[in-house]
Design a protein around this nucleic acid. Structure first.
Lengths: 219, 219
DNA sequence: ACCGAATCTGACCGAATGGTCAAGATTCCC
DNA sequence: GGGAATCTTGACCATTCGGTCAGATTCGGT
């Protein structure tokens, strides 16, 4: 992440507003069209600014994309670090993590979609992050899981795969939202969809891991 | 699916070879670059044919993409129709379906990635399919699940969401293969990765659904 | 009020890309 | 064997798109 620097390295006032609205617009456009499909002109229009303005602040399309990604990664890691800690009980931690990830998927689906698109393409930009930071984080989280298993609080499952599954199930509600809506039909409201999603995912995770003291005995 | 027709509506001999290698090349290129990112010239090079040849057989990039997608959808539906049937026991059906989907993800990851990319973009081409065919299929599969639940063979879970979760978990091993490999490291071989994946996903699904007579009592 | 720095913007490129075409090569069928 | 349909291909084009730039315009400090 972070390569070189844009035009002026100083801080400004209007800078904040412009960059913020550009980033927001970029997240919206990139999330639906992907990096290649997104047009700088469209992002500019979405942000209500002339195209040259984007280049003034971010230099190139590539750097703008990186900036968006960086923001996404930060939140991604924060959520995990908040929930998957040894102090919590497995039931609370895993259910909380699932709930938080689903909330992200609902509130900020574009972020999840951009991340997905990046990894789909082979993670040309994120590869260093995946191999270094993410790998370390997962190792740490795996240790937490194994600690719980060792204390008899849950079954022994392959920790990394458990996380792959949790990420897949939760993020699918952002990445494949169109499919979810199409299948469930228009009569299914957002609230009920996400309520059912949380119940289902939580159930699969908690029961699948044999978590004792299952908070969600039924749903 | 299927819109209009290519240049000549007749059958040919060399036609088969060329179209086949073009489709294979297209699947490889589209799967990593997405529709917008894929270059007709690259697909041509991958297929070992001049670019004009692709246009001779498929007319436009759009029609070539549709042809690839159509093929993918067919397999997608076949697998589901094969496993999720009332005659089978839930344990066998669900485990078999998971195994088959994971095999697809391993053997033909490009197909899954193309499908994912299409849905990520809002399914501009697949929307009709999602709303009509897929919705009907899921309704049928949901009826099977509910039948099993009614017979006391498994718990009552929201069937559509169960499938969303199964698709997410299995396809993530194709779509996010790069992330999986990066996190698990190079020392993890294909075989062991997919073995662990199958064990984990199957466990989450079967235990999560409270399937009786669980074939996989432990792993 | 004044001045330099920061910000903004319309007009303008060059490269890349999907698509075309007409002429040449090959295959098929009688 | 011969002619027509099918197939192949290099050269070419129009458009689109990321990026540039020089000239306004506004902002911040004194």
């Amino acid at each position: 992440m972070d390569a070189g620097m844009g035009p002026p390295p100083v801080t400004g006032a209007a800078r904040r507003d412009s960059t913020a609205s550009i980033l927001a617009a970029a997240e919206r456009i990139f999330s639906r069209r992907g990096f290649e499909g997104a047009r700088m002109a469209d992002i500019a229009a979405e942000a209500g600014l002339p195209k040259a303005n984007l280049h003034y602040y971010f230099g190139t399309k590539d750097r703008l994309y990186r900036a968006v990604l960086e923001d996404i990664i930060r939140q991604w890691l924060d959520t995990a670090a908040h929930w998957i800690v040894p102090e919590r009980a497995p039931a609370e931690a895993l259910a909380g993590y699932v709930r938080a990830k689903l909330a992200d998927a609902r509130i900020r689906p574009g972020a999840s979609r951009i991340f997905a698109g990046e990894v789909l393409r082979g993670a040309p930009l994120l590869m260093p992050f995946l191999v270094d930071e993410l790998r370390r984080r997962v190792a740490a989280m795996a240790a937490v899981i194994e600690g719980w298993a060792a204390r008899g609080l849950m079954d022994g499952v392959a920790p990394a795969h458990l996380f792959f599954c949790i990420w897949a199930m939760t993020q699918t509600y952002a990445d494949f939202d169109v499919q979810v809506r199409a299948v469930l039909g228009p009569e299914a409201g957002e609230d009920s969809v996400f309520a059912a999603a949380e119940a289902t995912v939580t159930r699969l995770v908690l029961r699948g891991c044999g978590v004792r003291d299952s908070v969600t005995e039924m749903s």
